[in-house]
Amino acid sequence: MLKRLRWRSLAVAAATLAAALFTFGAPSGAEAAVPATIPLKFTNNSGRGDPVYIYNLGTLLTTGQQGWADANGTFHAWPAGGNPPTPAPDTSIAGPANGQSKTIRMPKFSGRVYFSYGQKLDFRLTTGGLVQPAVQNPSDPNRNILFNWSEYTLNDSGLWLNSTQVDMFSAPYAVGVQLADGTTKNTGHLKAGGYNAVINALRGQSGGWANLIQTRSDGTVLRALAPGHAVGSGVLPTTVMDDYINRVWTKYSSSTLTVTPFGDQPNTKYFGRVSGNVMNFTNSAGAAVTSFQKPDADSIFGCHKLLDAPNDLIRGPISRTLCAGFNRSTLLVNPNQPDTSSASFYQDSVTNHYARQIHAQMADGKAYAFAFDDVGAHESLVHDGNPQQAYITLDPFS
């Protein structure tokens, strides 16, 4: 059965921001100047000869209605789905050939721009809406298709556009935005040879990490699964983080973990101590504020379950800090979190090696290799309040 993927933290955060804007009134000035659609220049520098298909899928922030946008940026609501899921309409846009560009338009919603090589993606609709591809599922119809996606939110406050590896590392690409003064910001480019370097490093990493790589029957590498999906589907051991988790629990049974979750609020601190199987947090007045059960690898890699992060001002910010600390293996070397200096990331032998290798091969060091990789601003995101044009560039595989 197909499984719906979670929207990542960026989309949730941007949607929350949009909801606040709608609640408290429309913005003014430059923010209000954001048009109903903006151009997205899609450039194919992949070096591949197979056709490319583009999909622009998302949710209207004003109504919560799910649908898709055509090449002109016109929104179309999905028809009713079924149970079992029924085929979605073909919403593909013919992409540019290698060495060429094509400009489409992005409407104001929170969504994903998918692209696939050589074959169209198979989307389905349930009674609850769109089913996203879930290639950790062996029966997913998109399992043997080479594809990837970018995530974005466009609203009256501007554009947030990112590359993502939260679910998988696959066909390389970068994102960008043109500002009102004509300059551009971009991120997501790999170093020369970076794609193969990530794949080869995972193949050489002991402990089951090689099992993240999925190939087609002809030997074509399609992707590396994110470790959360790999644990969930049984191809990465559930115990892969146990040694580090146990050492963290031992350390903070006799010492205090201090979490200062907001960079602009240095006096807002929470203090964690372990008692048995629980890490309890208090505020500066000594009052209990929240607690966390000892997490497992699935909770850490997915930043969910035992490390759930609601959109509040206490538990969520503490949880996202813990999630970043576990994935980057900084909790033992620094009792003051978040540790935002990348020099200390991934230094323990037990760590998120998937995230470690991806960041190591990014031209600017930035990636979205797990849900809260934006802690300390290490995410591959471009944002502007008055975007003139967006960019997605398909990069070479080698």
Score class of each variant (00 low, 15 high):
residue 172 P to T: 01
residue 129 G to P: 11
residue 178 Q to Y: 00
residue 118 G to R: 12
residue 149 W to A: 02
residue 120 K to N: 13
residue 186 N to A: 14
residue 203 R to M: 04
residue 156 D to L: 15
residue 149 W to R: 00
residue 127 T to A: 15
residue 185 K to M: 09
residue 123 F to I: 06
residue 163 S to P: 07
residue 161 L to M: 06
residue 174 A to P: 06
residue 123 F to D: 03
residue 143 R to H: 05
residue 155 N to I: 01
residue 146 L to K: 12
residue 195 Y to A: 07
residue 175 V to T: 09
residue 171 A to Q: 13
residue 153 T to N: 10
residue 172 P to G: 04
residue 142 N to I: 05
residue 188 G to L: 07
residue 168 M to G: 03
residue 113 V to R: 03
residue 165 Q to T: 02
residue 115 F to G: 02
residue 185 K to L: 14
residue 185 K to Y: 11
residue 127 T to S: 14
residue 122 D to N: 12
residue 146 L to V: 07
residue 155 N to P: 06
residue 162 N to I: 02
residue 123 F to W: 09
residue 200 N to G: 05
residue 120 K to V: 06
residue 179 L to A: 15
residue 161 L to W: 09
residue 118 G to F: 11
residue 136 Q to T: 08
residue 127 T to Q: 08
residue 135 V to N: 03
residue 144 N to G: 12
residue 185 K to H: 08
residue 149 W to T: 00
residue 115 F to I: 06
residue 133 P to M: 05
residue 201 A to H: 13
residue 205 Q to S: 12
residue 118 G to A: 07
residue 187 T to C: 05
residue 205 Q to W: 06
residue 137 N to E: 15
residue 140 D to V: 10
residue 203 R to G: 12
residue 203 R to L: 08
residue 124 R to N: 09
residue 200 N to Q: 13
residue 195 Y to M: 09
residue 144 N to D: 15
residue 188 G to W: 02
residue 117 Y to I: 05
residue 154 L to R: 08
residue 120 K to T: 09
residue 176 G to A: 02
residue 170 S to G: 13
residue 142 N to V: 14
residue 128 G to A: 13
residue 119 Q to K: 14
residue 194 G to R: 03
residue 169 F to R: 01
residue 193 G to T: 01
residue 169 F to K: 00
residue 196 N to A: 08
residue 133 P to F: 05
residue 125 L to V: 00
residue 135 V to L: 05
residue 144 N to Y: 15
residue 127 T to W: 05
residue 151 E to V: 03
residue 178 Q to V: 01
residue 148 N to C: 08
residue 175 V to N: 15
